[in-house]
Design a binder for these strands. Structure first.
Lengths: 173, 173
DNA sequence: AGAATCATGTAAGGGGTTACATGATTCG
DNA sequence: CGAATCATGTAACCCCTTACATGATTCT
């Protein structure tokens, strides 16, 4: 099923670090508060992701000792990390099922960071969806395969709803 | 994320066995041929599922020795298996993301087995979707949370597309 | 002859979830 | 005073995917 790598929450963590450095638990709280209705992440997974991001050189960590509280590790974006985030931010999702997570997350960061270029991303994402609608329309179906046609119509319906939403998405201030 | 158990392909296997007993590899071929565009399954997983179904008493297996070919195990529905399938067949999906797999699979079996009661299932599924649209409409959003509103509109759009499709779904002979 | 199909599995590996461990502080 | 929050991780477990093992037949 998920041959194509599952969407990773890593870019979201990079995005949260774009504003300022933070420690893991703080990232968890912000992730949950800001994107919790869209994307859920567990603490264990978040810590594992941060470790991976550090290994990949996208963030650096420095430990901060506190008087009364346990130590905490402050994570900071590297320039490679910034680049990776900006790269991710401007890519449309190739697969419909990823849009719900990825596109909404991208939209969030465009708004939060007041980044320019949302129009281009929306246009690119619409193009991807439109191409899929047409690919479905052109896909061969046995003459009497009513079920096959219903499957195609189901997908087209989902895609068209996304396309309509993408338009409205630009109109919202 | 997937706290609620992922959709299992097990009921599909039971459904394929409703027509007649089959062995694993044959189930794999039919699964792929009939539902391949909707639901993909690997051979390993399919064999594991069959083993589990047998352990659960939903199917029985008898080995069939063949002259030239390797032995194969013929699986047969038990009455508990039939009951489990029919039960699954008439339940609407509670979560949107499951509809793409589960509802389409149910629709397939209604058509294939010429089962009565599709109208009721469609009505029940529409009711679930409509309730979610309304729950979203009623969900509290901070006055100025434009992003939150966009998320809600995205979901409502997907749900409305499904509701429309469900209507058309009954019209198709 | 080599590749694909038939036919069933086991084993290893990867990734995620849950539970556990620790220890101070603050809230009800 | 007990529970939740702060703060970070490790360990066990589960499930899935990929690769491997076997071995005959049929297609190219």
């Amino acid at each position: 099923m998920s041959r194509e790598a599952d969407v990773s929450p890593a870019p979201v963590l990079l995005g949260l670090l774009m504003s300022q450095p933070r420690h893991g638990y703080e990232l968890y709280q912000e992730f949950s508060r800001e994107l919790g209705r869209v994307w859920r992440i567990g603490l264990s997974k978040l810590y594992a992701q941060l470790k991976q991001l550090e290994a990949d050189g996208l963030v650096t960590a420095r430990a901060e000792l506190q008087a009364t509280r346990p130590l905490r590790k402050i994570y900071c974006l590297t320039s490679a990390g910034q680049e990776a985030f900006l790269d991710w931010l401007h890519q449309p999702s190739r697969h419909i099922r990823d849009i719900r997570l990825e596109f909404l997350a991208r939209l969030y960061f465009f708004r939060r960071l007041a980044m320019p270029g949302l129009e281009q991303l929306v246009a690119a994402q619409k193009a991807v969806c439109q191409a899929q609608v047409e690919a479905l329309a052109g896909s061969t179906v046995e003459g009497d395969d009513a079920f096959g046609r219903l499957v195609i119509e189901f997908r087209q319906g989902q895609l068209r709803a996304i396309i309509d939403w993408l338009d409205r998405c630009l109109e919202t201030p």
